[in-house]
């Protein structure tokens, strides 16, 4: 399944793993902040309307 990486397997896989971890972390954090803020704003807007 994996391509032939030879003696650089750890180097290449390490670089990919770290970069993908950072990207996924950023995406998850951004989505969590977006969802939390949308819900908080919705609650306050409903409270203000009442």
């Amino acid at each position: 399944m994996l391509p032939e990486l030879g003696k650089y397997a750890a180097t290449v896989l390490g670089a990919y793993a770290l970069a993908i971890l950072l990207i996924v972390g950023l995406v998850v954090l951004s989505l969590r902040q977006a969802t939390r803020m949308r819900d908080r704003l919705r609650d306050v807007e409903e409270r203000v309307k009442e």
Partner: peptide, 11 residues
């Protein structure tokens, strides 16, 4: 560079 050239696609 051997297989390390694949890092270019992220770097």
């Amino acid at each position: 560079q051997g297989a390390t050239v694949k890092i270019i696609f992220l770097h």
